[in-house]
Write a protein that binds this DNA or RNA. Sequence first.
DNA 1: GATACACGTTCTCCGTCTGTTCACGGGGGA
DNA 2: TCCCCCGTGAACAGACGGAGAACGTGTATC
Lengths: 219, 219
Amino acid sequence: MLTAKQRELLLFIRDHLHSSGVSPSFDEMREALDLKSKSGVHRLISALEERQFIRRLPNRARALEVLRLPDGASPAGSEVPASAAKPVPIAANDTIDIPLHGRIAAGTPIEALQGSENFTVPAALLGPGEHYALEVSGDSMVEEGILDGDFALIRKVDTARDGEIVVALIDEAEATLKTFRREGQMVRLDPANRSYEAQRYSPDRVRIQGRLAGLIRRY
Amino acid sequence: MLTAKQRELLLFIRDHLHSSGVSPSFDEMREALDLKSKSGVHRLISALEERQFIRRLPNRARALEVLRLPDGASPAGSEVPASAAKPVPIAANDTIDIPLHGRIAAGTPIEALQGSENFTVPAALLGPGEHYALEVSGDSMVEEGILDGDFALIRKVDTARDGEIVVALIDEAEATLKTFRREGQMVRLDPANRSYEAQRYSPDRVRIQGRLAGLIRRY
DNA sequence: GATACACGTTCTCCGTCTGTTCACGGGGGA
DNA sequence: TCCCCCGTGAACAGACGGAGAACGTGTATC
């Protein structure tokens, strides 16, 4: 599950947390692992986070939290290991991890934004098919109850019916979340905000990248 | 999770609370941390609040509440640590199962609706504390992006600050989701829909049953 | 109800600490 | 071979924290 270095770092964080009460800074970890650069630490931390051994607040100082320890680790003090203290109360395995492809804004096709981040959602929210998540940027869909900062769950499809909310890629360059409508030979993308105007394109300029399947908001 | 200063302040607040019964003022905290200005304290407090270690009422004197303690902190007195008194189950898993207490509509207090259904949500969506879910009924909060049929995730608390969206039980009979505001001696519950009017009640008629913590929508 | 006081909030300025990212490279396993 | 792990170095952005002052807000008091 972990490489030797990752394991060493994880145990160091655990010990540091236990003895001083605060998580170590990147420089302290660099020192402890006998490295000369922090960027190696950064990679190890990312790996530990990806493997769900630690949790952290991004861009925050000393904001690490150890979630669990590798198998066979000795406890920090004379106490029980952290893993035993958390008996893992909830099973409920009906969730799905989907990739979070960044913010949906102007500029880049969705495929380009292959973020490493993942997003866990209840399986009940999603239908069949492949999905991904986007963070909504801007207020063009407020009248549909889609606000800036919301997470849109998108089902990967390349067709849409009138009235459906889709991720549309215009001219292979700009992706937006809009209501899809056909208008004669043209495609119309309707915002849900009176301050914005509907846009019309010829079908060959518009590529559907998915259909809105769910929405998640944090307060 | 915390920097040294943040941890120091949190432990001071805990001790002060424990020995004198009230939370310290900003000046007392400034003194305790050996600072010459309160603004540093303010920033530390904000960081602690952001990390969900404390809760507070804005513009209220000495209105701090310790929600949990950093890992490895010794208890204040000879008693059990605050963390044990308040279970605050932050699951290490990715998801948490919370009860779905039916639709929020007129008629009945939330407790009465002990539905058997459960609702699985990503743990990242919820902070500490106990939560439950409600299905939103009606369009009184559309301008906040809360639509009929959405699922509101509610943190079980009995206090609210101005501007927060809460589940309020009126006269022990009718529960609604509204924005909470104080207005002089009265409590005002604001809808987010121009077609509805704000309602005013004396505080003893209103019981807060929770605070909006997240929102989930299915398309 | 006017006033005074205590307290919390916000701002600017500043220096330091810390995390992030990039580009470079080497080694080893599948 | 490609891919992953690991190391280095440097530059940068932003968080953190301290000082001081002005300003709001709540509460008590008269």
